[in-house]
Amino acid sequence: MENGFAAQITGVLAALILLTAFALLVQRRIYGLLHIFAWQGLFLSISAAVVGYSTGLRHLYISSALTLALKVFALPYILYVLIHRLKIQKEVEEVVNIPTTMLIGIALVIFSYHLTSPVRELSTLMTRSTLAVALATVMLGLLMMITRRNAVTQIIGFLSLENGLFFAATSATYGMPLVVELGVALDILIAAFIFGIFFFQIRTTFDSLDIKEMEKLKEED
């Protein structure tokens, strides 16, 4: 019964993560994106903790705490500061045709459900049903990176993709080994700083953060 209830909670959290992934796809304002991203991290962290509690795997607590610190507080804060410094908070991004994007998103969810169905039948883990959601989150993150034009939103898409990978690890094998997770966390943090530096560089070079400007970076005929 205990385990069943934990499975229900992870199910709800998986649904919430999926919801935030969709919300990231449709949100136009950059601050809104940051909030949603922080919420996604929070759900991820809770779900890792719940899985850790119900399976008795200690290292999941550490991942959960790491996720909480990094993805709910640190990264959104860094991005917030970046946005503030770059003075792009007023920018409302033009998103390509939201309904179409959402329909593609739905198709991706169905596709990932289809892809993970063999795993679901073989696995005996409590979290096996959330694997489809994890894969869908990865794909939705990629979709977001494809459809957005602003560099900052692209980074958020990338981070959300990473969230999906983390969730996949939790649901497929109850998390990666701790060393790997620590390494990934460090990578993400460093990546965030590098992004920041790059943003300033892009900004000073092109006077805009619209990645359309990068189209100029090709060899002239």
């Binding site: 199910g11 998986a14 939201i98 959402m102 739905i106 969810v109 959601v133």
Partner: peptide, 21 residues
């Protein structure tokens, strides 16, 4: 239309999560 499209996506997500979760 976008607002109602959101409602449609939410309902579809509900249906999907019934099957998936």
């Amino acid at each position: 239309p976008e607002f109602l499209g959101t409602a449609f996506i939410l309902a579809t997500l509900g249906m999907l999560s019934y099957f998936m979760l």
